[in-house]
């Protein structure tokens, strides 16, 4: 599980790391929307260039980006196979037995894959350069206008930050319990179907018990320190938008506008 890099924060010092999380989140949203505008290959070329530029600026290595895409490879292959059967437009490229692959299928799949790749690259740029805590601060601030219509922005942000905080702990706990049950003769890899069910049960039940225990302890610790949701709170870290943050937001939106223009007029 240690090799799973999707969504991991990478501590580096770069212009992208120093950006205000709010600016980064807004810029990411603008670029994600831009991906779904059918701007053809020109549009994607522009987007790819922009994302590559951001990756270079962020000092993230391309091997890291590649690694974070690996979990999606399977899905891409699956999509390709599905599309080959379903889409029957354009010319026939190859015929294998009764099945023919159409050019439309290939194009459609390539579009989806390119979109997926771009999505992963953009979200990775955000998660790898923003500390989870900064991210939740950013989300909280961005949700502030919505609190007028009853959206609990602070609570949502707290939920997200706690959930993120406990992922490594739960992974560790799972390994611990797995080892303990393996020592009691549970076979997580070999064994019959019914044995596997009981193996999973012996893992899930203690995991839930300890997760609830942790939640209880955390709630008590927070209350003991006077935490009350909905109260006014001051912050240790105050976010401030600087010139570069505004430029990032403007740049990303310009990119979005650009793709719309390309989609309409080219």
């Amino acid at each position: 599980m240690g090799s799973f890099v999707l969504g991991k924060y990478i501590a580096l010092d770069s212009p992208v790391h120093r950006l205000d999380p709010r600016a980064k989140i807004v810029a990411m949203l603008a670029m994600l929307i831009a991906i779904f505008i059918p701007a053809g290959w020109y549009g994607y070329a522009v987007l790819f260039a922009a994302v590559a530029g951001v990756i270079l600026l962020s000092k993230l290595s391309f091997t890291f980006i590649w690694k974070s895409m690996k979990p999606m490879l399977f899905m891409m292959v699956f999509l390709f196979i599905m599309n080959c059967f379903v889409i029957r437009t354009g010319e026939v490229l190859v015929t294998v037995g009764k099945i023919s692959i159409y050019s439309g299928a290939v194009m459609q799949t390539l579009y989806i894959i390119v979109r997926l790749l771009l999505m992963i690259m953009i979200t990775t740029c955000l998660t790898a350069t923003t500390k989870p805590l900064d991210m939740t601060l950013g989300i909280e601030d961005l949700l502030k206008p919505a609190s007028r219509i009853g959206v609990p922005g602070h609570e949502i942000a707290m939920l997200i930050s706690i959930a993120l905080r406990f992922i490594p702990d739960l992974i560790e706990e799972t390994t611990r319990i797995m080892k303990a049950q393996e020592s009691r003769g549970v076979d997580m890899k070999e064994g019959k179907f019914s044995e596997k069910i009981s193996a999973i049960l012996s893992l899930i039940v203690p995991l839930f018990v300890s997760a609830f225990q942790r939640a209880d302890d955390l709630a008590n610790a927070m209350e003991a320190r006077g935490y009350a949701p909905g109260e006014k709170r001051t912050r240790y870290k105050v976010l401030k938008m600087r010139v570069w943050d505004w430029l990032t937001v403007i740049g990303a939106n310009a990119l979005l506008a650009g793709t719309i223009v390309i989609a309409r007029f080219l």
Binding site: I177, K179, Q181, S183, R184, G185, L201, P206, S210
Partner: peptide
């Protein structure tokens, strides 16, 4: 089965 291993705080294995 031949080597019984009891971990630190083994109570979390109860299910």
């Amino acid at each position: 089965g031949d080597v019984g291993l009891i971990f630190q705080f083994p109570e979390y294995q109860l299910f």
